[in-house]
Each structure stands twice: as C-alpha cells, then as structure tokens.
Design a protein around this nucleic acid. Structure first.
Lengths: 154, 154
DNA sequence: ACAATATAAAACAATCTTGTCTGAATATCC
DNA sequence: GGATATTCAGACAAGATTGTTTTATATTGT
C-alpha cells in the first residue's frame, strides 16, 4: 500500500546512512546486510538516488555512498519524488488522468484534505528526525535487527 | 499511488452501478464502455466482487450484475478489502512485516494519525454519496465522459 | 600490479494488466 | 419444447512493469 518496494528500501537506506558518521562513505554492502535487503537491488536504488543528487558516490577503495546534505535538510518528499516519480504528488485516487478542482472525480474534494495530511507528513519528516529515533533504540529500521547479523559474523 | 488499477476500476464500476436503477442488472460491457476500461479485465474484477458478496450476478439473457445492497450500505473500505486484501489496513509505511506500537518503525507514530484519516475517509464514503455526486453532473467518473460514447452509437 | 569498490548491463523471475477463447446458464421467440 | 441469442464463468496466455539476481567493466587507493 502507498509506497513501492523501491521507495521503502530507499527510505530505509537513507535513514540508516543518516545514523552513520557523515565523514566516511557507507558501503552498499553494509547497508544491505543491516537492513536485510538484496544488495544488488539496493545498489541500483542508491545509484538512482546519486543521479538525483541526493547522494555522493565514490568508486574504488575507500569508496561508498554519502548523503549530499546533512539529514536535517532532506525530507521524505524529496526521496519519494525520485523513487515514485513526479506523478506522486498529483495523482487522483480513482486514477483519472485529469482530476483538478475544475474537472473533478466524485472523490476529489474528500480526498484533498487527506492527501494534504500525507504530503505534510512527508514534507515535515526529515532524515535527521528519523535517524535520531532509530539511535534512541526505541525504533527498528528492519524486520531482523542488524545486531543479529553482527553477532553471526566471525 | 495508494490504489492498484484493479481497485480503481472496481470503485469506478460500483459507483456507476449505484447511479443506475437497482432493479435491472447492469452489463459488464456497458460499464466498461462507459468508463473506458478494458471489458475482459473488468469482468474478472466484477466476478471477484460477486464472490466477495458485494454483487449479484445473473447469467443468460437479461443477465448482468446488481449491487447486493443499496449504495448507502456499501462504503469504500468494504470494496478495497476485497481488491487490495486484508493487509490493506495493517501495513507499515516502510514495509516492515511487524510494526506495532510495541515494535515500531521510526515512522510508526507519525503515520498512525494520517492513516486514521485515510481509513476514516474510506469508511465514511458510501457508494450512494459518490453516486449522487456523479448524478449531479458536477463530477466525472472517467477520463472520457460516457455521453460521448452514447452520441457515437447508431 | 593488485585488491577493493562503484557502475553498468543483462538475465531472470514475479506480478499486474489486458486480451482471447470456450463453455455454461438463462430468457425469449418460434 | 427446442432453437437461438445473450450473458456470465473460467482457463489460458500475451504483454508490460517491477523486482531480483548475476555477470562483467571501470575506477581508485595501496
């Protein structure tokens, strides 16, 4: 519902990156194992976020991905505009191609205030807020906590 | 966003049916041409709605589909539970399998009030309200208005 | 040169949307 | 009552989209 798998992974990965020290690049591999998502798929997503100017990417040894800006300057809307496309903000609940105040579907005016709530949430929620929540230890970013993976490694 | 194509077609079709006289069955063919959606695909959707006890279906001459109850007794949530599945009401924004108050993702408590707004809208919006809106002539149910089709027919 | 890393490309699988075809049920007409 | 037309029902598959995996290539630091 609501978000595609791609968007979900993108948001999770960026939150995780926001919890890491900003100086050193984060490896795709590490993010993937911490979140428990397929690494090559995540790589593709991170690449597209780099193309969308949300991330820096560095090749070679000591390479990896870095947030282009600090977490307090990146909100969820910016991310989802990249992963869901621009249609994300303007779509009609019934899927009509044109559905504006002038030429509206019967749900249009009921949907507008609800949609505004969603958009406000996405605009207002920054990576920094979410990263702090995760760092507090009260919230989980993945189904299988990352600590479990760390314990299993030699 | 939000709804699958299947759900969108289902809602559109049911609204259309609610605008028609309840006594005579409505033909899948007619609904499809009025809405401008593929008839075979819509037929499948209507069949599953019949299995879900939202519609009656009648075979043979003078057959078609009828609403099982009057439009004021059917809300959008009932429809979407059939087309999107029960997960629809309980999913996490980040896609975590378990995300409850006890074991929450960092977005959980921000998402809850917004989600409630969505659910309230779906619960509160009945087919009758939507049908009346369409009948008033101020709202459109499809991208290409049905009247256009009627004029083109011999 | 070598090893570690991102990047690109391609192959694969699953799901969603749409279309085709055959069959079964029902009402109407003769 | 039988023939026929109409309509839903269900199986099957093509096409598109999305998600996933695999493989190869290019770049960088040591």
């Amino acid at each position: 519902m609501i978000l595609s798998r791609t968007s979900q992974y993108a948001v999770q990965a960026l939150i995780y990156m926001a919890t890491q020290p900003n100086a050193t690049p984060v490896l795709n591999k590490d993010i993937a194992s911490q979140l428990g998502v397929p690494a090559p798929y995540l790589a593709k997503i991170l690449q597209s976020l780099a193309k969308g100017n949300l991330l820096f990417s560095f090749r070679g040894r000591l390479g990896g991905f870095c947030l282009r800006e600090s977490g307090d300057k990146i909100n969820l809307m910016q991310i989802l505009l990249l992963t869901e496309g621009p249609v994300f903000t303007q779509s009609c609940l019934l899927g009509l191609k044109v559905c504006s105040d002038e030429t509206a579907c019967p749900l249009h005016f009921r949907w507008i205030p609800v949609k505004k709530k969603i958009m406000d949430l996405l605009q207002d929620t920054t990576l920094e807020k979410l990263a702090k929540a995760v760092e507090s230890g009260k919230y989980r970013l993945a189904d299988v906590p990352g600590q479990l993976f760390d314990q299993l490694r030699p």
